[in-house]
Design a protein around this nucleic acid. Structure first.
Lengths: 338, 338
DNA sequence: TTGTAGGCGTTATCAA
DNA sequence: TTGATAACGCCTACAA
């Protein structure tokens, strides 16, 4: 790849490089005609400023990095699309990176992005990420970062959150008022704040209705369909079948539901299900799964807006937290016991 | 953000910058002790070579750009993960970009990536992309690019393809041998080679069994669930219900199936379904959808390998095409009419 | 084995 | 209004 440089254009027109540069950055004085001439011949020659050099001098890239733990499940892609809409509008380009739930590649990704001088970062932590020192250092240096969804409570930074506690409480309450009293919670990974919050909501709903909970009501599960299947198989093997299952997210709920169905259990009569973080699947499976829907698109939009705010007001900026609301989409998997 | 530079380290140690540089690029002669000293103090000082400057001199970034039209449907994410595995192994970082099926932002993405000096590109075209001049220019300049899935036949470049024709033929043949004779094809977007190939397979299967086709057997549909729903609603309204539907991809098949189910049609007795490019959904919906499964992970792996080959042998490189095979996953939605 | 100095493609300051 | 030139942070002949 041979690049046409500013020098080539300068030579061709018998002008100084600085004049060419001026033509491309209209903040300087330059005669209208020369500017037009430069722009014209420049495009003819296929010239186009080298962003690498630009970044080197300006320490600024107009690129935003987004780091997500995975993007198989629809949730993160939707958030990204929301963020992109805002960012593109403001002339920023988005570089997306996925860490595959690995702390190591997450940090690697972040470093690459920072090295490439992205102007800011939108991050959702991997399930492995416990050590957040690197992020804190970055934040302390004044690097613009917004975290969303998977955050770490220790981190002093801007965050876009979902009210996991509240909606987990609602979702559990829904099951209870539908007549399900023996409900098992499939817990998410402990390292994530959202798992703790959802668990807390589950517990407080039981407190509210004065229903006792024992350790048997909690099963640690991942966030994959497979983990849900494994859990269900174990339940059936041990013959410990609850009235209902409230899962920390949709995939394990779906996995468990599949296994119970295969084993002849009727849903929701024999066992009811409620998931969390609605995936497209929820409405399509049989029976359709009741689930808490998060405003994915808006999460992206708000994260992007907050980040831009931070970039544009580097000094006056204080960490903020925005908490968004969702919806409980009630479907067949959790209707009333007749 | 203040960066520690090579000069800071040089000053601190009373050495020349070139010596510091050498310590970080072990291809030069340098005394072992000095090197160790440099590396030690450098990390202490938090120094770390500025990739921007490095790129500027070396014209090389060890970054690979991936451009996909969307990543809501699972297909592209899986491909990306496959590619990342290979690329990470070889020390490359991956920058992902999605064009949201828009030609304009696709080109914008590609340009940003090229400007950022990615060493190569893995691309799947958006459904809008008809004009491929920009890509051809890039290829002619010797820029390493591998296309996959959504390609343009005019483009003289390396490609990873799926044998759409063959598997569309198989899939259609499966429907025919199961007893379905009046099959409607939900066509994909015309601009894509894969749509044409799948249609061709559909047609040739009919030829093989000497079944006549009329224009009524073809309905242009998109690749969304919504488009499938709309199509089904129209069919029901016009009371033109075929024995079976072969869709160019899963989402329209799923959408159509949902509408037919809601309207009391029994699947597959009243109407059977076969999809293409298996999404996770296929096996989870009711009834499970027969679909052609593509080796998503391998597509990514092969694309990455081919790209690396191209990067490492810039001169001796000739455009190649690899065609991968799939599987027809036969499920309930298309079983034999009894 | 280490140092000097020019160059990568820009921008920005100072002169002209 | 334009030109010359020093940065930006690094690499790499070439010299020492």
């Amino acid at each position: 790849m041979d690049y046409v440089t500013i020098k080539d254009v300068a030579k061709r027109l018998n002008l100084a490089v600085s004049t060419i540069s001026r033509a491309f950055n209209d903040k300087y004085d330059i005669k209208k005609e020369t500017k037009e001439l430069i722009l014209k011949t420049a495009t003819e020659m296929g010239y186009h400023p080298n962003p690498m050099a630009k970044k080197l001098t300006q320490k600024r890239s107009f690129n935003i990095g987004i780091v997500v733990p995975e993007f198989i499940n629809g949730f993160f892609p939707e958030v990204i699309i929301g963020a992109q809409e805002i960012l593109f509008e403001k002339g920023y380009q988005v570089l997306i990176t996925q860490s595959n739930e690995s702390y190591e590649s997450e940090i690697k990704n972040v470093k690459t992005l920072v090295d490439n001088m992205v102007d800011g970062l939108i991050i959702s932590l991997s399930s492995e990420s416990k050590n957040t020192d690197y992020y804190q250092t970055l934040i302390d240096k004044g690097f613009p970062i917004v975290f969303f969804n998977r955050v770490n409570s220790k981190l002093k930074s801007s965050k876009i959150l979902f009210n996991d506690y509240k909606w987990a409480l609602f979702a559990t309450e829904h099951l209870i008022t539908q007549g399900y009293k023996n409900i098992v919670h499939l817990e998410g990974l402990e390292s994530l704040t959202l798992s703790k919050e959802r668990k807390r909501g589950f517990i407080d709903a039981h407190k509210k209705y004065k229903i006792e909970l024992t350790s048997n009501h909690f099963i640690k599960s991942g966030f994959t369909i497979e983990s849900g299947k494994a859990t269900a198989e174990l339940m059936i093997k041990n013959n410990q079948i609850p009235n209902a299952i409230f899962a920390s997210c949709d995939p394990p709920a779906i996995g468990a539901m599949m296994v119970f169905k295969e084993n002849g259990y009727k849903i929701p009569t024999d066992i009811a299900f409620v998931g969390f973080t609605e995936s497209k699947l929820a409405g399509l499976i049989n029976p359709p799964l009741t689930s808490v829907m998060q405003p994915t698109h808006d999460i992206g939009v708000e994260a992007a807006k907050m980040l831009l705010d931070q970039i544009e007001n580097p000094h006056a900026y204080l960490p903020q937290t925005i908490i968004l609301n969702g919806t409980l989409n009630i479907r067949e998997s959790s209707v009333k016991i007749i």
